[in-house]
Nucleic acid binder design. Sequence first.
DNA 1: GCTGTTATGACATTGTAATTGTCAATATGA
DNA 2: TCATATTGACAATTACAATGTCATAACAGC
Lengths: 153, 153
Amino acid sequence: MYNVNMNVKHLHKLVWMSRPLMQAAEACVEKGLGGTDLTVRMRAVLEILRQYGDQSVPQLAAQLEIKRQYVQLMVNETLASGFTDQRANPRHKRSKLICLTDRGRHIIDRIIADELALMADIGEGFSDDDIAKALEVVLTVTERLKSVAGESR
Amino acid sequence: MYNVNMNVKHLHKLVWMSRPLMQAAEACVEKGLGGTDLTVRMRAVLEILRQYGDQSVPQLAAQLEIKRQYVQLMVNETLASGFTDQRANPRHKRSKLICLTDRGRHIIDRIIADELALMADIGEGFSDDDIAKALEVVLTVTERLKSVAGESR
DNA sequence: GCTGTTATGACATTGTAATTGTCAATATGA
DNA sequence: TCATATTGACAATTACAATGTCATAACAGC
């Protein structure tokens, strides 16, 4: 029998707070996107490209853990809006690499900067250590939950 | 100009981890529900009833922060499956209170117990203080993000 | 009690995110 | 060269949730 202590209940609550947190976060992001032609899902593509460099659609799909067919839609939107462009892929002739245009890079840089500025406000009152530890908990818990859910499928 | 330090980047990452965390959590919950006739959304109704007692559909909707029409569907499913029942509402004759049946209470108790047991494994290696602090960060950040997103609408 | 307003349940419609399935074209690798 | 895998394109489907509407019924002020 497990000793169901406070620790465990806190963790349970933390995990269940992930949905409200996500919703609040996405609402904020959406608000920050107001005025630009970007959508939240286009933003996700630009962010990955910004952080990890040019990639093919299937590679993006793996990063985002979303099916490639849907990522293709997202990417097509960014292409149509001129935030990204295609260039030759040395590793696969048919699957072009998606890269940020100057416009795309400019806008995603600005958006991320705005978001970080917001985070500076949001984190008010917590120490660097608090935040670092909280992140570590969240990352670890996510990994462990993934492996639990993934088992024996 | 903001000083974009590690703290802020960690917080940004933490916030963006909320989606993967949620997906992993829901996948685990779904797995835990295997074998029962419960769905994830029915589970949500039972959990609120278990924690906060009998409530009307509009009250549940407020708790879950979901529109009452959709909660009505969720509740109807729990009624149809015999996990909940209706009883007279002293405060409103038409809007019955939804309450757990013995079967409903038994199953949600078991599911929560299983989840807490899983949390005991998942939290391995973190101190009570780490978890408590992480929860505090998540709760606070969620509240603050909500208020930011809610402003001037 | 009468009456206007609100709350509720029921149902239909719509929107959006994302998955799944399929197909043809093309690349890749043995 | 040829079998297999990958890719992009597109259609269909599922799931979640919001939104709209309506009739009924409850409530509150008078």
